[in-house]
Every structure is written in C-alpha cells, then in structure tokens.
Computed example of a mutant assay.
Amino acid sequence: MEWNMWVMVVSALATSLGAIPVLFIRGISHRRMDSILAYTAGIMVAASTYGLIPASLKLTNLYVLCFGVLIGALLLNLLEYIIPHIDFDHQRSDVVLPQQSLMLIAAMTLHNIPEGLSVGASLVSEVENLGIVVALSMGLQNVPEGFLVALFLVNQDVHKLFAIMMAVFTGLIEYFASLVGFYLVQVSLFLVPYGLAFAAGAMLFIVYKELIPETHGHGYERLATFSFLLGLLSMIGVVEWFR
C-alpha cells in the first residue's frame, strides 16, 4: 500500500519537475514547442496501444475494451465543450490574466483526471508490472506537460514561482484522481479493464485532437514526426524493460 502511494505521488508530481526549467528560460521557439508536444504524443500513444489496451484485453474482452475506449474519448469531448479550450500558442496579450489562468488550469484538468484514474486502477490490477509501467508513462508525459503549463503562465506575465506553483497544482489534481481510481477499483476489481480502456481512449483523444494538430502548424512537421517516433520508442522501451 505505502509503495503504491509513493508511485502515485512521483508520477503525478513529475509535472513539477518539468516546470522547473521555466525559471531559467525566457522563451521557447515553435520548433522546440512542436518537438516537445510530438514527443509527448508518442509517449501517450505507446502507453495506450502497447500498455493499457493489451492489459485491458487480457482481463476482459473486445466489447469491454471498445466501450471503455469510446467512453473515455466521449467524456473528454463533452468536457471540452463545457470548459473553454486553451491554445498555448495563440493567446491574446490583452485578456484579463486571472480568467486565462483559471481556464488553463481547467483545461489541464481534462488531461490529468483520466491519467490519474489509469495510474490508480493499474496499481490495483493483477497484471504483472502494469502499475509501474503506467505510472512511468504518465510521469514521462507529465514532465513536458508541466513545462508547457508554466511556460504559458510566464508568457502571460505571471511570476515564475507562481507559474510553477500552478503546475504543481495540476499535478496534485492527477494525484487525487489516482487515489480515486485506486480505492474505487480496490472495492470493485471488475472495473479495472474498464478503467484501463477508459484511460487509453482519453489519451488517444488528446493526442489526435490536441497534440498532433498543434505540432503541424508552424513548418516543423518533419521534426515533429521524428520526435513522435522517439517518444513512441522510448515508451515501448520502458514497457519492455519492466516486463
């Protein structure tokens, strides 16, 4: 139990690690931004298709998998209608800061809730090494995510330390979601394959709807493509290492 709690903490608060470099960076080019986003997308695709989906199929059947994946994608689609979308690279500088900051945190919550649920659910599952693999995959993609959150706030003239605090806050959201997933699945173990499929669907929705389009609008499509492949192979390497 104690080990699982520490795994959830480290995975969620990896967002904080990614935010720290903002203290030393004045700005970032589209080239680097696209590369980071594409690498993150590769990690998330590998985590979904090479980790979560096969694990869900081992525990259940194709019908449950399809149901969970579609529900995960549909829920994020619904939440995106409810909460205004944030585009990191196309913000007006004259918008009132507090409103923008709250919208950003709300948008990141859409990412962190299913991620946290997947970590908590996988740690309770009986699939060998699944929990640590999922936690590592979430932690790896949380690093660039935390960087992007802090960078956006700094570009909106927020103090750097406050921007890092907000990145930490988004990580805490994921940690609490992990606790929910952990204790919910512990009570009803039959929900594990649904939770894994749900997380896979949510992550694939984010990749196709948000990350990939964002990396193909500034003329660095080839770099983004290879960054995506590097992220994909990195995550596959992590999965194979712990098998």
Rank of each mutant, 00 (worst) to 15 (best):
E2Y: 13
E2I: 09
W3C: 09
N4K: 14
M8S: 05
M8Y: 07
M8T: 10
M8V: 11
V10G: 00
S11M: 08
S16A: 15
A19R: 01
L23M: 10
G27S: 14
S29E: 15
R31M: 15
I36P: 15
T40P: 09
A47I: 14
T49E: 09
L52V: 10
A55T: 05
A55H: 07
K58L: 03
K58W: 09
L59W: 03
L59T: 02
N61M: 00
Y63T: 01
L70Y: 06
L70S: 14
I71P: 01
A73V: 09
L74Y: 10
L75A: 12
L76W: 06
L79P: 07
P84F: 02
D89S: 14
Q91Y: 15
S93A: 08
V95E: 05
L97H: 09
Q99L: 05
Q100V: 00
M103Y: 05
M103P: 07
A106T: 06
A106L: 10
M108H: 06
T109W: 04
T109S: 10
H111W: 03
H111Y: 10
L117P: 00
A121K: 01
A121C: 01
A121R: 06
L123G: 02
L123E: 14
E126V: 12
V127R: 00
V134R: 06
S137L: 11
L140T: 07
Q141C: 08
A150L: 07
A150Q: 06
N155A: 05
Q156L: 14
D157V: 07
K160H: 11
K160R: 15
L161P: 03
F162W: 05
I164W: 04
V168N: 11
F169Y: 04
F169K: 06
F169S: 03
G171A: 03
S178N: 09
V180C: 10
V180S: 12
V187C: 06
S188F: 11
S188A: 14
S188I: 11
F190H: 04
F190T: 04
F190K: 03
P193G: 09
A200E: 01
G201C: 12
L204R: 10
Y208R: 04
E210G: 08
E210I: 14
G217S: 11
E221G: 04
L223K: 12
T225A: 06
F228D: 07
M235V: 12
G237R: 12
V239H: 14
F242D: 03
